[in-house]
Nucleic acid binder design. Structure first.
Lengths: 193, 193
DNA sequence: ATTGTACGCTAACGCTGTTAGTTTGTCAAG
DNA sequence: CTTGACAAACTAACAGCGTTAGCGTACAAT
């Protein structure tokens, strides 16, 4: 009845807040609506489907992640930049696990808007790799390798897969990143030959 | 009415088949029941909840993955064994993506039965690492690193995250694995010092 | 032959996303 | 100042989900 003056951005913002605090798992449109003092059906005046909502939140998450990475590597070069980037990625995953999960649930195949989002993920990594003398194709491969390491690590850590052994998890991550730097330097040397 | 002589194993088997063919996403107890010519409620004579069902399928998936890895590394040593293991893991993820997803959805934190399953994941990797002269703690770390690489890679590949660049995806994976082998050898040398 | 249990059934509950159709508040134009 | 249009809320409903309670029946063992 009483107009609440809700905007699209309000909806997205509230959804993000809810997901971060209550968890992606227990999120629902009805709960979101209720928190906005609205009926679930009324949400459809602002969004076209739950899929669209998740996609938009995914965009937000990706841009946040991108920002965090660029902030971290600012003014840094080579190994130091790689470490800072990896650290920022790891921190993002640990501090905002539910939002990170939204990124994972994005079906990157679908539309091309998502393709540009995928580009956003790649950007900071490519920026870091630019500090190394690498062939363009090598850079593409190595970018994938670094993403695999970072994503694989935090998603397994988050899932609790790393509790099997008592070894310190941060140490493992550091070793993974050092291994990647080793590979980078190796690739650089080979290119010179 | 007419007894069908359904066993617990039949249910699990049918569920696995459905998930592999139709996808985890569109799987439901009601569809599973209908495929077995049963009502959904009747499933509860054989399983206690859908969670339990997913968990059991997860066990199955993990054991299959473990088997594939051990088969691959049989008779191989060191770098060759690492490559074979990584290759088997990759193949499993590509050939049975839906079943692989079930593993991911397992909440490893929960009960201790799942802890033993987590052990099963670790086993073949530790077997391969045993071919290298490494401190016990190094082995734990490196096992996590390899898992991160393998899991991170195939989960991103599956999600379509690697279409951004034209570079060959298998080449990227090979490079990731070679990088890990490099790290292994590096760690081995350092240990000798 | 009788009894017990394992396994099927129906009906229902509360939850999910989603749609159609209706009302109402607000703001702009006449 | 009234009127009309549009935006944004509403209610009611549908189909689907997992799950529970309670009922009936076929089969196996006594």
């Amino acid at each position: 009845m009483a107009r609440h003056g809700l905007t699209h951005a309000d909806i997205i913002g509230a959804a993000i807040e809810m997901i971060e605090s209550e968890g992606l798992h227990s999120f629902s449109l009805r709960e979101l609506a209720s928190r906005l003092h609205i009926k679930a059906a009324s949400l459809y005046n602002h969004i076209s489907s739950s899929d669209e909502l998740y996609t938009e939140i995914g965009y937000y998450a990706i841009s946040e992640l991108k920002k965090a990475q660029f902030d971290a590597i600012a003014g840094k070069q080579r190994a130091e930049a790689v470490e800072a980037l990896a650290d920022a990625y790891h921190r993002f995953g640990k501090e905002r696990p539910e939002i990170y999960k939204v990124i994972l649930s994005l079906p990157m195949v679908k539309n091309d808007a998502l393709q540009t989002a995928a580009g956003d993920i790649v950007e900071p990594i490519m920026a870091v790799l630019s500090g190394y003398r690498l062939a363009e194709e090598h850079k593409m491969h190595l970018q994938r390798v670094l993403r695999s390491i970072m994503h694989g690590f935090i998603s397994q850590e988050e899932a609790g897969c790393f509790r099997h052994f008592p070894a310190d998890v941060s140490d493992s991550y550091r070793m993974a990143v050092q291994g990647f730097i080793l590979l980078l330097e190796h690739a650089e040397k080979e290119a010179l030959v």
